[in-house]
């Protein structure tokens, strides 16, 4: 059977998708219920959660899929660096940093003939 066959596709998504993600959310509730808000343990959990998300961010920038797969690395890293520089120079407003990075990427892609 393959994923195209009607109900099997939904069962596949439910088991390999829903169950595989929600198990971790439920374990997170169980663990989080035991943590005190001012504890050193929560500080560690916070650090691990942030580092995990940061690793996902780095991978999306360095190893993108789709159109950006063909774009040069320097353009992606350069756009983020420029966005970060503007973010820190002009009042640390997220929207300003994001707009700068995206505009730099769009200009670069256009200039490279995408």
């Amino acid at each position: 059977m393959t994923w195209q066959d009607g109900w099997w596709a939904y069962a596949f998504i439910a088991i390999a998708g829903w169950l595989a993600t929600d198990i971790w959310r439920w374990l997170g509730v169980v663990a989080g219920n035991k943590l005190r808000e001012d504890s050193e343990a929560l500080n560690w959990v916070r650090a691990v959660a942030t580092a995990l998300v940061a690793a996902v961010i780095a991978k999306l920038i360095l190893y993108p899929t789709g159109v950006l797969e063909q774009s040069p690395l320097w353009l992606r890293v350069g756009s983020v660096a420029l966005g970060a520089a503007v973010f820190f120079l002009f009042g640390r407003k997220p929207a300003v940093g994001i707009a700068t990075a995206i505009a730099a990427l769009a200009l670069g892609l256009w200039w490279l003939g995408f």
């Binding site: 942030t50 580092a51 998300v53 996902v56 899929t65 756009s79 997220p94 995206i102 769009a106």
Partner: peptide
């Protein structure tokens, strides 16, 4: 170009927003 920019929004937004919303010093280091 639109498809590329759509993809790129996600990591850039996560970065800016995590830095902006951090209330504990450990978040910057992490």
């Amino acid at each position: 170009i639109a498809a590329g920019c759509l993809f790129f929004l996600t990591p850039v937004y996560f970065l800016a927003s995590i830095w902006h919303s951090a209330r504990h010093p450990v978040v910057y280091v992490a």
